[in-house]
Structure formats: C-alpha cells, structure tokens
C-alpha cells in the first residue's frame, strides 16, 4: 500500500482523467451515438420486416381461406339452384301431366256423351225405321192375306176365336 501511494503520480492522474473524459465525450458524440443508433435502427428494421412478412403470410392464409369459403359457397349455391330447377321441372311435368289428364278426361267424357247421344239417336232412328218397316210389312202381309174372301173370313173367325178364348 505504501508502495502504491508512493507510485501515485498526480500528473499522470490529471492527464488520464482529462484525456479519458475528453475521449468519452468525443466518442459519445461522434461514434457511440451514431453506431448504436445505426445498430438499433437496423435491428428495428429487421424486426419490422419479419413482422410484415408474418402479417403477409397471415393475410395470404386468410385470403386463401376466404377463397375456399367463397368457392364452397358458390358450389353450394349451384347445388341449390340445380335442386330447385329439378324440383321446378318435376313440378311442371307433374302439373302438365295433371292438366293433360283432366283435358283428356273431359274429352273422353264429352265423347262418351256424344256417343251416347248418337247411339240414342241411332237407336230411335232404328226404332222408327223398324216400326215403319214393321208397319210396311204388316200392311203388305195384311194386304196379301186379306186379298181373298176366304182369308178375310178365316181371320175374322180366328179373331173371334181368340176373343172367346179371352
């Protein structure tokens, strides 16, 4: 300790303090400040770039998910539309079928009615003709049978016979 104190040099201490503090101040202004700020700026830049890349990746993922969702929706919509169309078609066919059926039924009914009418007309016509014919035939028969006097007497007798019987 005694040697240390003996070795102490005030002049050296003076110069060392002055020079060191001077160096410290100069380096602070012209070296450490710009160096440290450059380093931290760069680090900040790297950090931001990484952050941005991460965000971009996330956005991409979001976009992809969105796309997929939209695609799925579109597919669903198409599916629905197709289903609806099919239903509509089926319904229309069904309706058309029904309509056709009623129309046909109507026509058939009408035809039946007219056929009946025709038939009835034909039958009545036939009846009148048969009646005419019968009358004609009967007339002719009568005419033939009653042409002779005998025949007339026979018929009267017969008729009288019938009356008796009754």
């Amino acid at each position: 300790m005694d040697k240390l104190i003996n070795d102490f040099s005030f002049g050296l201490f003076f110069w060392q303090t002055i020079l060191f503090i001077g160096l410290l101040l100069l380096l602070r202004k012209f070296a450490w400040k710009p160096i440290l700020s450059a380093i931290s700026e760069r680090e900040e830049g790297i950090k931001n770039a990484l952050e941005e890349a991460k965000n971009a990746r996330k956005e991409m993922q979001n976009l992809k998910a969105d796309n997929e969702r939209i695609l799925k929706e579109a597919r669903n919509q198409r599916e629905e539309l197709l289903k609806e169309a099919r239903q509509m078609r089926d319904k229309m066919i069904e309706e058309a079928k029904g309509e056709a059926q009623t129309e046909a039924d109507k026509l058939i009914a009408k035809a039946k009615v007219s056929i009946e009418t025709e038939k009835n007309a034909a039958i009545s016509d036939l009846k009148s003709q048969v009646a005419d014919l019968s009358v004609d035939i009967a007339e002719k028969l009568l005419k033939e049978q009653l042409a002779s006097k005998d025949n007339q007497v026979q018929l009267i007798e017969k008729m009288l016979k019938d009356v008796k019987l009754n």
Binding site: S9, F10, G11, L12, F14, W15, Q16, L19, F20, G22, L23, L26, L27, F30, A31, W32, K33, P34, I35, A38, I39
Partner: peptide, 29 residues
C-alpha cells in the same frame, strides 16, 4: 509534475487512434 510522460504520450496516441477508428466505423454505418 504535469509532464507528458511515456504513459500520457501513449494515452494521447491511443485516444486519437480510438477516436479515428470509431468515428470511421460510425461513418461506415
């Protein structure tokens, strides 16, 4: 004794060197 001794001289030289070196580095950044 405020002499520029060997050590004081060395400090002067090294301080100047450090100043030159680190200012150069700062500029290079």
């Amino acid at each position: 004794d405020f002499s520029i001794t060997k050590n004081v001289f060395s400090i002067f030289i090294l301080a100047a060197f450090m100043l030159w070196l680190f200012v150069k580095i700062a500029k290079s950044y």
